[in-house]
């Protein structure tokens, strides 16, 4: 294909996006579009399955049967999200094995927040309330993103995430209406998860490398800083309702902007965790690698069994 032909295709492609048309897997797309989407969708899928670990950590210790069942269902939802996001990613011409390899080798990233430990039951509340809360803010605009399979997957993901967020808040509410020990546990969880949740919305706009192109492709509709502000404005009144204190002495409502001003984020900590040196980076990847490696014989057996059955079918047909 000549350069001119490619240029024409690109113009048609950009015009389609501008008209809010969905791009489907079989449509022509620029190589950069394909690569960017593989990167972002797989990063999202990896976040779902790595995210199963810190919450899975409390399934065996959930404090009541009702909570145990709800947590099981929640972590199962995350596995489901991982499954359809990997499937959406596969439509772009990459296999799930390759994607796993990228996760295991450290080439692909996942949301840094999952590198923090879940130390108490209240962390199940805080993760649902704050982490899923921040995730929704990030993800709702993606329901209208330009790539069809991703947009459709996100519609379902967002519905379930919003349920998880309410569930997390409800765990916190129960703790805050409980004994002093329970309330302390809730405050401690908020103290530990607040700043990482703000960081979860990504580096400041000045440092965000992917923003401009992603905006054009509708992979992003608002900047990281705008999303962060939206998250803070939405969450502070909820903390008030719980009777908990946001661990930021500089947090103050600004009447002029109608938003909360907040203190400086420790971006050194953010980069430390992103670069692999957070409290649980090694454990999370080791757990994923172990699950994959220990499962190799199972997957091999399934393949071998399927081909034996296929061979029998062929034999009967002959």
């Amino acid at each position: 294909m000549s350069n001119e032909q490619i240029k024409n295709l690109e113009e048609i492609f950009e015009a389609r996006i501008a008209r809010d048309e969905k791009i489907e897997a079989k449509d022509w797309m620029p190589e950069k579009y394909r690569k960017t989407h593989i990167r972002q969708i797989s990063q999202h899928a990896h976040s779902e399955i790595v995210g199963m670990l810190p919450e899975g950590n409390w399934i065996s210790r959930a404090p009541s049967l009702r909570r145990k069942a709800a947590l099981l269902a929640k972590v199962q939802d995350e596995a489901g999200h991982g499954l359809y996001l990997y499937s959406a990613c596969e439509t772009l011409g990459i296999s799930r094995e390759e994607l796993y390899q990228q996760l295991h080798s450290g080439k692909a990233k996942y949301s840094s927040i999952f590198n923090y430990p879940t130390l108490t039951w209240a962390d199940m509340g805080a993760v649902g309330w704050l982490v899923d809360g921040a995730a929704i803010i990030n993800q709702v605009p993606l329901c209208n993103t330009s790539f069809g399979p991703y947009a459709r997957a996100m519609v379902r993901v967002c519905k379930e995430e919003s349920f998880h967020q309410r569930q997390g808040f409800e765990i916190m509410l129960k703790l805050c209406n409980g004994s002093k020990e329970q309330k302390d546990m809730a405050q401690d969880a908020l103290n530990r998860w607040w700043w990482p949740s703000l960081m979860m919305l990504g580096p400041t706009d000045a440092e965000s490398v992917h923003t401009e192109q992603s905006m054009k492709w509708k992979l992003k509709r608002k900047s990281n800083d705008d999303l962060r502000q939206q998250f803070i404005d939405q969450t502070v009144p909820q903390a008030d309702l719980l009777g908990l204190t946001i661990p930021d002495p500089d947090l103050k409502f600004n009447k002029q902007t109608g938003s909360y001003d907040f203190g400086a984020i420790d971006w050194d900590e953010f980069w430390q965790v992103v670069k692999g040196h957070g409290p649980c980076n090694k454990q999370r990847i080791s757990a994923r690698v172990a699950a994959w490696d220990n499962g190799a014989w199972v997957r091999d057996a399934a393949m071998a069994h399927a081909s034996k059955k296929q061979a029998i079918k062929v034999k009967i047909a002959i």
């Binding site: 399934i59 972590v75 990997y86």
Partner: peptide
């Protein structure tokens, strides 16, 4: 429940 997140594949998990 102990196995959640550690299965040999996403489907079995």
């Amino acid at each position: 429940g102990e196995l959640c997140g550690h299965g040999p594949s996403l489907e079995t998990d």
